[in-house]
Amino acid sequence: MKALEIKGLKKSFRSNFLIKKYRILKGIDLDVEKGEIYGFLGPNGAGKTTTIKCVLGLLFPDQGEILIDGKPAAGAGARSRIGFLPENPYFYDYLTARELLFFSASLFNLPAAAVHDRIAALIHQVGLSGHEDLKLRKFSKGMIQRLGLAQALVHDPDLLILDEPFSGLDPIGRKDLRTMILTLREQGKTIFFSSHILQDMEMMVDRVGIILNGSIRRQGRLSELISRSTQYYEVVCAHISEPVLTTIQANFACRDGQYVITLASDADINQVVESIIHNDGRIVSVNPVKMTLEDIFFNEMRDNQ
């Protein structure tokens, strides 16, 4: 059973009271396996937040089906096992961190006595120890983000939905959040997070869905998407003269005292390597150069235009 399944999701907005409608989601199909980190990648305005809001019942889809744990997402009960961190979260600034967490627990019908220890542990886990009784109006953006994660975890959810969790965080904050998300996966949680920051995505996700202009363009295991996309091969060698190298392969460049030969396919690798060795050269490395997630993303962007 999938943790989250979205089939044919469509959503439009009216720009004003006039008849004209703007279709934001044009048929989203995606599925999130249990226990994985799923990266929902797309540029600003692609429909990531709209999709998430449809899942959470904040927006009503025009068409399509959303299943959480195999059950329809409509209705408040379906959200009982979901933890959600909104983009740029804002919490009641007159509350303290501890008060906010107790309030969040009450929304899951959890009595204060039952979550007392969990809240204390969460405050420690997200690195807010010593700040639990500080009013939120005195919190920095990074601290709010950490608290946002804590309130999403207060009921020990199975599925975590994080909307742009890295936006606005400094490098330390991003690293801490990455570590926390990876730890949660180790604990068996399913994490669905949206982002337009490729680096974070590439470092963490098991599977990725690329959304562009309201449609899913690519979806799959990140390792498969990348391994299927070797662009070319590089043979790095040294202790060989340029004139000799020119006779072996014309397409090379000098980099840090070593020569880098670029081969379009793996068919010529053996012959090039043998020739270099035969001419007393030294092979430093042979590398398949694969597309990064960034390359895949920008290719899709280009195709979309």
């Binding site: 959470l56 904040l58 909104p86 804002y90 969040s104 929304l107």
Partner: peptide, 14 residues
């Protein structure tokens, strides 16, 4: 306006 409602209605609250 302040979007705090996201934190409430995204939970099992009708």
């Amino acid at each position: 306006e302040k979007k705090t409602i996201f934190n409430i209605l995204s939970k099992p609250v009708s």
